[in-house]
Design a protein around this nucleic acid. Structure first.
Lengths: 255, 255
DNA sequence: ACAATACGTTTCACATTATGAAATACGCAA
DNA sequence: TTGCGTATTTCATAATGTGAAACGTATTGT
């Protein structure tokens, strides 16, 4: 269902690069910085940004700096109705955070990467903190593995071929057969782990959030320093995932 | 601060048109429909949509129909942090809805129009229902008038000149002087009305939501059939607006 | 006050790109 | 199998987006 790579339209590639660059920083950015971040000529960046401003996809702060604009909120509000994971998930995430004391993340899948779109942060000084909007390949994250598990071995092989199993740490799974086995295990259990595969010292447990059709539509995960990660959390993490899935009309199959 | 109209880039204009068309309907759309909605040649629409799919701004359903994609959620999650009106506002909106029994709306301003981005719907069979994502000119809406009031008479005159005061009903304000007076009144009161100006039979009361700098960043409004609209709601609407503003760090000035 | 510097904005020639008509492919119903 | 409607691909080319250069603006240093 993915469009072939030959369908690229240069301006669109570029504007997405610009939007992503603006989304990487919380503070508004100057033209010079944006151009450097995107590799575009300043006058080209200026032109595209002006058009994006016209459409409210970008706006400018008082100092003339660029940041993402309100039309994105409007469009997002029209995405995948009636499902809005952030709206439905936050209270449950906050509950889970208060139960276990660690950071809880909500993630979406975008093609070959996992994106963090919401979080409830641990109050501890040393905690794991994924910036909202940040991305990670599916194979190095617990929730990413669950997305692959949801699609099956064929899709997993396709991901491996298409995206590759790049190594991030000594623990990253880079062998396709190992990933397939890991995915299969995640599917049977209904949860998955990240054992310092994305970043040294970081451990993670994730469960799927499913909609009424049974499809996994988001990931709910708990990240912590690996020494603090505890299997005792599992019942609650699973419970939170089940709560959110139920809200989306998911009905577990018996057995 | 608005870019001049000469900075248009055709592909960007077109892709925004496509995204907006997809956002107008809850159900996914076929290529034929999208092309008709946007006035683009089918092959052109197909090409641009393919590029948008590549970037996850659009996705396709199982039947091959097009709908808005997850990257919009990601980008929206990175907009105007730490302020997210929908996240902060929904519980208060639901409280207000339960207090007065009418539909509560959350709106943002995009240039010359007001956009509805969230709502808590009245349970009554006959109610006012603005579709999420729908738009209305500032001058015919209560919250829109407040946005104009927030910027002052000069901005109001600029809006009048730039956008025009198109008539929607017999009640629509089409005289610039009347609008200015109306805006001034709204500013002094701190709330505004829509008296069947956008649509016959529909009445509205709105209050501003302000951030820590005192700037109006969103509108909170109650819409109802005009015969049901009651001034008795005002204390609670004002209270709800104040609650949300407080959450954003707004500090009312004394006097 | 003037010069230098850095960044932002506009102009414009033109190579490249997006476009849309036509051809082809696909799916479904009769 | 045929016909029809929609989707997808191909390709010639007019139009468009591009980026270098010129110009404008603001700030700092002498």
């Amino acid at each position: 269902m993915k469009a072939p790579a030959t369908t690229s339209i240069q301006v669109i590639d570029r504007l997405v690069r610009l939007l992503d660059a603006l989304g990487q920083q919380e503070a508004p950015l100057s033209l010079k910085i944006v151009a450097a971040e995107t590799g575009l000529h300043p006058s080209t960046a200026h032109r595209i940004l002006a058009s994006l401003i016209q459409h409210q996809l970008v706006e400018r702060s008082e100092g003339g700096l660029y940041r993402l604009g309100p039309h994105l909120l409007t469009l997002a509000a029209r995405t995948q109705r009636p499902f809005d994971p952030r709206r439905e998930a936050l209270p449950v995430m906050e509950w889970l955070r208060s139960e276990i004391g660690e950071t809880v993340n909500l993630t979406l899948r975008e093609g070959d990467v996992l994106v963090y779109i919401e979080r409830a942060l641990s109050q501890k000084a040393m905690r794991v903190e994924q910036m909202i909007g940040s991305r990670a390949p599916l194979h190095v994250t617990a929730a990413g593995k669950l997305f692959l598990a949801d699609e099956g071995a064929m899709a997993c092989a396709r991901y491996t071929q298409h995206h590759g199993l790049e190594s991030y740490t000594a623990n990253t799974i880079t062998d396709p057969a190992r990933l397939t086995a890991c995915i299969e295990e995640a599917r049977q259990r209904g949860y998955a782990f990240d054992d310092e595969e994305a970043e040294p010292g970081v451990g993670c447990i994730a469960v799927p959030i499913r909609d009424a059709t049974g499809k996994m539509v988001a990931g709910l995960s708990v990240s912590a320093p690996i020494q603090r990660r505890s299997p005792a959390w599992l019942p609650r993490v699973i419970e939170a995932g089940a709560k959110l899935s139920a809200r989306l009309g998911y009905q577990p199959k018996d057995g």
